[in-house]
Design a protein around this nucleic acid. Sequence first.
DNA 1: GTCGAACATCTCGCTCAACGAGATAATAGG
DNA 2: CCTATTATCTCGTTGAGCGAGATGTTCGAC
Lengths: 152, 152
Amino acid sequence: MSGTTPQGSEMEIVHLLRAVTVELGLHSARFAQRHAMHPTDVRALIALMDAARAREEMTAGRLGAALGLNSAGTTALVDRLERAGHVRRVRGERDRRKVVIEVSEEAVELGQAFFGPLIDRTVGLLEGYDEREKAAIRGFLHGVRDAAAGQD
Amino acid sequence: MSGTTPQGSEMEIVHLLRAVTVELGLHSARFAQRHAMHPTDVRALIALMDAARAREEMTAGRLGAALGLNSAGTTALVDRLERAGHVRRVRGERDRRKVVIEVSEEAVELGQAFFGPLIDRTVGLLEGYDEREKAAIRGFLHGVRDAAAGQD
DNA sequence: GTCGAACATCTCGCTCAACGAGATAATAGG
DNA sequence: CCTATTATCTCGTTGAGCGAGATGTTCGAC
């Protein structure tokens, strides 16, 4: 932050954005460590809860693909989560080759207890802004997401 | 998941923020994979470049602490980075127990080539907003960072 | 109906990042 | 100098994730 940048205002926000991603990552890491899980396990639970909210069935294969794991790694991941009681394996009804992964109630509550307060505080922050300001925040985040996703 | 959402507008931004952190994480992962590095190696290089920009010497011990590695892991990390030519070990002049880690020019250029365009696009985005909107973005990011850092 | 190809998941053996414990080397204080 | 302290490295182990291949399931062709 020592003023060597020509446009300090913009770069300050860039660094702030990076700081936010770092802090959110550390927050997830704390959740992982507190519950004796690995970062991958947390990402898996988040993916599973997202799927549940979208009323989509998440199979072992889809989960592995979403996390960038191969079949062996996915099996080990689901083994770990199942052993810890965070998920259940359910053989697909329609297609019995599939293994549908269901998040346990206990894991959902764990996640809400840990991430809920952060979400509430963020929503609280947003309520302090008017529509034009919120539109700016929304537009900026949208743009950054697309810039990061589109880049090569 | 939908326990506290009477207002969709705020939750949309919360999800957008999470999407941004996911995309930025994937962007770093692409950088790591393309250069045959691990996520930890990328985090290490970023920490080293931050230190360099702040004109601070980064020693092996401080680097390990910043990344949450113990001494053995830190040694292995620096070994990897040195073998790949991304950093150099330099024995401390004043205190010869210390090992100062310096980032190679080549690694700096690698990082700029990959992250520079994204930063430029982000700055470009920001230039489209007026001061009040930028203040809102800055304030929001600031608040989220503190909320994530302060929690528990 | 039965056969074989395609598919979804699991098992086995391996590699390598990170850990714990302890060794080695250098500084500072009495 | 001799001891406590600090900084880094070495050794042996653990465990997540990979590649290859085994097992069980569906579906179309005949």
